[in-house]
Design a binder for these strands. Structure first.
Length: 103
DNA sequence: GGAATGACATTTA
DNA sequence: CTAAATGCCATTC
């Protein structure tokens, strides 16, 4: 039985390079609205190597938090993926990956 | 079973 | 618009 976070990881791994997804959309992708639980899954970070958790951002485009060095590290990783980050925020208009796009 | 926690989201003042 | 308060779901103790 896959745990909720396992499913979240699966979806997160399907996010293409150069794109980001919000906690809410990610939760929707697993047929739930538990964006809180999603954040918990990232925090627990069972597979930090296989899970690009840095692609997960807040609904308003704010980068939010990150375990692995802080937001600064997260932003750096995002930029490395070709994503523009302005004032710790991302252009969801350009880089937001929707849950339905995963399906 | 119940209380507490969290890398958020939405609403209200 | 900014700030604060409330709600949210799943997990863990």
């Amino acid at each position: 039985m896959k745990s909720f976070n396992e499913k979240v990881y699966e979806k997160l791994k399907k996010v293409p390079k150069g794109k980001v997804i919000t906690y809410k959309e990610l939760a929707k992708s697993v047929k739930s609205d538990a964006y809180r639980a999603v954040g918990n899954a990232m925090k627990n970070n069972e597979d930090p190597v296989k899970i690009p958790c840095y692609k997960v951002v807040c609904s308003d485009g704010f980068v939010g938090n990150y375990s692995g060095g802080g937001m600064k590290k997260k932003i750096k990783l995002l930029r490395k993926d070709g994503i523009e980050v302005n004032n710790n925020k991302i252009d969801l208009k350009k880089y937001l990956f929707k849950a339905q796009d995963i399906m």
